[in-house]
Simulated assay, not measured.
Amino acid sequence: MSVSIASSIVSLHEPGRDALPAYVRALEAGWSPNTMRNVAPEQLAAIAADPDAFVAGLNQRGGTIRLHDGSEVARLPDMIRWIIATDRPERPFVGSINLRWQEDESGKPVTELPPHVLGHVGYTILPQHAGRGYASAALAAVLAEARTVGLPFLKITCDVANAASRRIIEKAGGRFVESFVAPLYGPEERLMYRIDLQS
């Protein structure tokens, strides 16, 4: 499934076999869809073993995920989207973005997040495609998906030194909330932003 945003330079796609070769090339080049740890080797092994199962696993709900410290936790409800550039004739795969949230017992989304989750949204662009507006366009598209889910706002974080990410978040309407340290991820200071979704 793709999400089309008017005048956007990207489309967002559920992980699928059509873009899998480009995804594999990105992993082989050293890119990781996880900004907290390099998951490229394990993903490449999983794709080599069973590409259909790998793709299905990205799109399914439930299961567990492994954190950077090796511990496993329950996977939150989420949407993983592969970012395809539409402003170039070859329509290259340029990165990924995901939206995650918690639900109450009735299945209604709630805005609280567990300590191991820094924010509702995570994204990463392949280095060779950085600086072309793809992350900004992808984040705008994900905000539309978050409204569909029913979230009233998103928390999104970035490292203090990541000026490019700060600009992307602020362009999407992010309002600075606080600086904080997440002990699970080390002593580095991070910035928390909030993006309101209700008009």
Rank of each mutant, 00 (worst) to 15 (best):
I125S: 07
L126Y: 08
E188N: 05
P152G: 04
A19M: 13
S32M: 09
P89Q: 13
N38A: 08
D87E: 05
H129V: 00
L143I: 12
A146P: 01
G133T: 11
H68P: 00
R81N: 01
A135T: 05
A163Y: 09
A85F: 12
S106N: 08
P109E: 13
E90Y: 09
R81G: 00
I47K: 11
G150P: 06
R88C: 00
G186E: 12
R132Q: 15
H13N: 09
D159E: 02
Y23W: 15
W31K: 12
L44A: 12
E90I: 07
V94Q: 13
A163S: 06
P89L: 14
H68I: 04
A140C: 01
D50A: 12
F176W: 14
Y185V: 03
A146D: 02
G57K: 08
V181M: 07
K171N: 07
H116M: 03
E178S: 15
D78G: 01
L113K: 07
S2G: 00
Y185P: 01
L20G: 06
L44C: 10
D196W: 11
A138K: 02
W101Y: 14
Y193V: 02
E145G: 00
M192C: 14
G62Q: 03
D50T: 07
R88V: 12
L58N: 09
D50E: 07
S106Y: 05
N34E: 14
A19G: 07
I83W: 03
V181D: 04
A141S: 14
G107Y: 13
E145D: 13
I97N: 02
R190M: 08
M1F: 05
S71N: 11
R147D: 04
Y123T: 02
S4N: 10
A163H: 13
N34H: 11
M36L: 10
I84A: 04
P41D: 12
P127A: 11
A6H: 08
A161L: 07
Y123H: 04
A48I: 11
S71P: 02
S7P: 00
Q60A: 15
L12F: 01
S106H: 11
Q102L: 14
T35H: 01
A22T: 02
P152H: 09
P51F: 12
L27E: 13
A29C: 04
R37L: 06
V3S: 02
G30K: 13
A53E: 07
A163R: 14
Q43A: 04
W82Y: 07
R61F: 00
R194K: 11
L126T: 07
S199P: 15
Y193S: 03
E72N: 05
A135K: 10
V121E: 09
H13A: 03
A135Q: 06
L44M: 14
T148C: 01
P115I: 04
G173I: 10
L67G: 02
V121G: 03
K171V: 00
D50F: 09
A164F: 03
K155R: 15
G119C: 04
D69I: 07
F180D: 02
Q128R: 13
E103N: 09
F180I: 05
E105K: 15
G174C: 06
T148V: 13
G30S: 09
A137S: 09
T157R: 01
R37D: 02
